[in-house]
Structures are given as C-alpha cells and as structure tokens.
Amino acid sequence: MADTLSTSTEQTKKAVKKMKKRQRESSLWWMYLPSVLLVVTFIIYPFLDGIRISFTNWNGFSQTYDYVGLDQYTRMFADPDTWLVVKNTLLYGIGSTILQNIVGLGYALLLNRNLKVRTLTRTIIYLPVIISPLVMGYIWYFFFAFNGGALNDIYLWLGMDPVNALGSPSLNPYIIVFVNTFQFVGVAMIIYLAGLQSISRDYYEAANIDGASTWQKFKTITLPLLMPSITINMVLNIIGGLKLFDVIVALTNGGPGNASQSMSTFMYNLYFSRQDAGYAATQGVLMALIILVISMAALFYFKRKEVEA
C-alpha cells in the first residue's frame, strides 16, 4: 500500500515535471528573453541596487564606502530641503494633473462639435507634445525672462515695472506647472476626444426627449461614460508631473536656491554637483515610493469610480 502510494507520487512528480517542461517550452521564452534582459539590466537591476546604495555613504566615485544603516534616511527626514522638494514635486504632479484634465476636457468638449476650425485647433494644441520639454522650457524662458522677455515687454508698454517671474521663489513653481500643462494638455484632449466619440448618440437623443438640460446631460451621461478616459489621463499626468525634469532645468535650473527643485532635479544635483551618491539614492527611493503610492492610489480610486458609474 505504502509502496504503491510512493510510486504514484513519484509518477505524479514526473508528470508534473514533464508538464512544467512542456509549459516552459510552450512559453516561447526565447522570444522575450532579449527584452527581459534589456529591462533587467537597465531598469530593474539599477533600481534594486539603488536601494542598496541608499544604505551607504558612497560619494559616487571612490572604490570604498561604508554601510551606514538608516543614517541617510534619518538625514533625509531631517533635511528641510527634502520637504521643500517633495512639496514642489507634489505641486508639479497634482497641479498639472488637475489643470490638464479640466482644460483638456474643456477643449475636447469644444472640439467634439462640428466646427470648421476643429482640425486646425487640434493640431496647434497638440503640437507642443512632440517638441522636447527642454526646448519648450527655453521657449517659455524667452517669454518669462527678466531681460527682454515677452511678458516684460507688455509690462513696459503698460508703464509697469518689469517682473522677475522666473527668479521669484513664490511664482516660479506655478510657472513650471503652467508650462508643463501647456505642453501636455494636448494628450489629455485627444484621449477625452476619443472617449467622447465612443459615447453613443442614442443616450443624448433619449435625454433630449426627456427634456434634460445641457448640464444634466453632461453630469448623467458624458461624465460617467468618460470615466475610463479620466482614469488614463489622471494616472498618465500624475506620473508625468511627478517625474518632471527637463522643463525645470530649462526654466529655473531648480533655483533660486532650491526653490523650484523637483525630486528629479534635486537628485541629479546631489549626485553630480555634490558627490553625495548615497544620499541621492536615498532621495531616489523616496521618489519611487511617492510616485508608486500616488499613481496606484489614483488608479484604484478612479477604477472604482468606473465601476460605480
């Protein structure tokens, strides 16, 4: 009895092994091996190694360094710059997300109508998306610059004093939000347009028969059926805004001081200008956590709304 039992488990084991082997073969793993290797080498391994480095005092170039436990983390939480930079990053992420979605939806609603100029308008609004954020930053620098900027030309014509908008710590984070929104509002607009076009006209006709007002139609038909587009836009824009780098480099280079620094530019400076690699890695871990938590929270929140709607 015991014998037969053990042989049968043996057999099952063999069968399972065989099945696993067949499954491995039928996975066609060699087809994705190059892509997996690429992503592991350039993203996953460095990301995990960054977590390790965050527990060291490495300066970024010497061969030796020490493990310092949680020192870099306590340092990070005690560093007032950390909180300034986190605050800016959240402003860039959440501020541009709100603006891009409100304005993008407004544009989409307008261009969803059969207007003669709609292709032209759509093209121009989308155009900045294909331009490097660095270049977009420079162009807006021409606009906001203290000396010879286009904005100050208007101020001078009006007989007012020129403003140093980019040099003002209380103003320039908002300018960065504006420029980022301006550049990427076209993406939100296109996604909302696609969403609007997938809503059947029958709903609106039925609502018209019931004598619904424009606002009622928007609230009870358009908005709920647009939820999938809202989810995509929210998550895309939040991730994009929290990662902001190029525009800041072009417009303010994080200054004055650290006033407009985001986590990305702050990390870059810690590593390359201040040779503080261990600490830069620690800031990197915090940034990854913040992006992960906020984008996942947004995803779950809006996905749930989709189900309710």
Binding site: V39, I43, P46, F47, G50, S264, M267, A281, I291
Partner: peptide, 18 residues
C-alpha cells in the same frame, strides 16, 4: 513584470546605472 516596470521612474535608477 513589464507592466510594473512602467511605474518605476527611470531617474531613481540613476546612481547605480551611471
């Protein structure tokens, strides 16, 4: 794995990648 990687901000891997 590929979907998860989309969430990792590339810059956080900067130090070791360099």
């Amino acid at each position: 794995l590929f979907v998860a990687v989309m969430v990792i901000p590339p810059l956080t891997a900067l130090v070791p990648l360099y």
